[in-house]
Design a protein around this nucleic acid. Structure first.
Lengths: 205, 205
DNA sequence: TTATTTTTTGACCATCTGGTCAATACGATT
DNA sequence: AATCGTATTGACCAGATGGTCAAAAAATAA
């Protein structure tokens, strides 16, 4: 039996990792309801009952992925530094989010799927982790604006715009693919740099 | 039998409309795979076999919704007028998209779900309808920029940003709900107006 | 080696789900 | 009222799916 008291064996570590890796593939591509244990079993190379030896059920796998994701997802925002140059800090945040769209598209789509379905398994996380962090960083941005380092805009909607414009390249890849000729991510870098510089650079009176 | 040759009777019109209305509710909330004919039957007040009397199957209902959606979705872009004032035309487009997030959130989520899953039933539509329209409007925007009426940016990515920032309020409503105190849509109007004015207003040398 | 614990699996089950079909109810026309 | 095409439904089915379980196979400890 997998005992949550003792430390996990090497086999347990390896197989749990395999399962989560396979599940990320499957869940991000088909959503929770569209994913089957059989598909995860196939993708991980383990049998279905064996998967249920490591996880109590489909839902626990999904929840585990979502929990892991939350840290990764918030990290760039955590790193936004109150003492850095405001515009460069925000642009750095934008670029890190854009890189995550390129490097972690599955995670982005997993998240998008969950929120689209009304965040049934994530609302507590959002309230407990995301909300306080966003409130804190909004306050930082407001002080920057008061000091005249940034042109004034609503910080909350600024965040919404950063999230949506960057994640768009992962979440709506199927659409971007149809419309774009060249590598969209390079164009996105230039565009978003311009967008946020023009939005946030304070104008001397 | 429902005969596609003859014009549909009043009962047929009414029931097909009922089914599509119920299906829009269900599909937009749970995605294609997460939705069941039983749920659509319940929501429409018709029995499952009766639904299959009007539509050949679950997929046909979904495809019908997607086809209807495409028109509604493209309409604001179609209306963008080459002869209007460039900045006002684009801002009008932004605001119409934002209104659609408020008034047609189910349609927005239906679309988002479909694209997130890789657009399995919409890629042909995107290529046949969306792509040419976007190409055309990108050309218009480029001429505006050449005439110095708009600050230069990549028109394609400009569209991506408009779509993502406006649709965000419908598609990620569950997240916005957690973070926003007041009515987010009013704040969004102000923010997006500022964002696109600052981005697009040409600077005299 | 043997005993013991951990890991893996084949067979199985209950439920859900998309879909069928024969029979029935309904509504318009004569 | 009788007729005929339209609309509706209860009963049913096959396949998919999440999950169980006893037994076998591996790994580990004695």
């Amino acid at each position: 039996m997998v005992d949550s008291e003792k430390k996990p064996s090497r086999i347990q570590m390896r197989n749990r990792a395999r399962i989560l890796e396979a599940a990320l593939d499957v869940f991000s591509a088909h959503g929770y309801r569209g994913s089957t244990l059989d598909a995860i079993a196939d993708a991980s190379g383990l049998s279905k009952p064996n998967i249920l030896y490591y996880f109590s059920g489909k839902e626990e796998i999904h929840v585990t992925l979502l929990n892991q994701l939350m840290e990764t997802w918030l990290d760039p925002l955590v790193e936004m530094d109150e003492n850095g140059d405001p515009i460069e800090e925000i642009l750095r945040y934008v670029m890190r989010k854009l890189e995550m769209s390129r490097d972690l598209p599955r995670e982005s789509r997993l998240f998008a799927n969950e929120i689209l379905q009304g965040a049934p398994r994530m609302t507590p996380h959002l309230e407990a982790d995301l909300k306080p962090l966003v409130d804190e960083k909004c306050a930082v941005i407001r002080t920057w604006m008061e000091k005249g380092k940034l042109a004034p805009v609503d910080p909350q909607h600024l965040f919404y715009s950063i999230w949506s414009t960057t994640q768009h390249y992962a979440d709506f890849e199927a659409q971007v693919q149809v419309l774009s000729d060249a590598d969209p991510l390079e164009g996105a870098r230039l565009f978003l740099d311009t967008l946020y510089r023009r939005l946030l650079t304070p104008m001397p009176e």
